[in-house]
Amino acid sequence: MIKVLLAEDVQMVRGALVALLNLEPDIDVVASVAKGDEILPAVVANKPDVAVLDIDLPGMDGLSAATAIHDTAPATRTLILTSLGRPGTLRRALNARVNGFILKDAPIGELAAAIRGVSVGRRVIDSQLALSAWDTDDCVLTPRELEVLRLASDGADATEIATTLFLSVGTVRNYLTAATAKLDARNRVDAVRIARKSGWF
Rank of each mutant, 00 (worst) to 15 (best):
L167H: 10
A65F: 01
D54R: 00
A42G: 07
L129W: 01
A113S: 06
A130R: 14
R14P: 11
V44G: 02
R92H: 04
V13G: 02
G155P: 05
E110L: 13
E38A: 11
S153G: 06
R196L: 14
A19S: 07
K47L: 05
V189C: 07
T78E: 01
K35E: 01
N22A: 01
N95D: 09
R116T: 06
T164Q: 04
D9T: 13
A158F: 13
E110K: 09
L81M: 08
G155N: 10
T136C: 14
A34W: 11
G109A: 06
L53V: 01
S127D: 02
G121D: 03
L79A: 14
I161R: 04
A178I: 02
I115D: 01
T67A: 06
I2H: 08
W200H: 10
L79R: 04
V29E: 02
L84A: 01
E160Q: 14
A19G: 09
T159R: 12
P48I: 05
K197S: 15
V172T: 09
G85L: 12
N22T: 07
I125S: 00
Y175M: 04
M12Q: 12
S64P: 10
V192N: 12
L131K: 14
S32Y: 09
G85M: 14
V44F: 00
A191E: 11
K3M: 06
D190A: 15
D190M: 10
T82S: 04
L53E: 03
P48M: 09
W134Y: 12
H70N: 13
G100M: 14
G117D: 07
P107V: 13
A34F: 13
T78I: 02
S132R: 13
V189I: 15
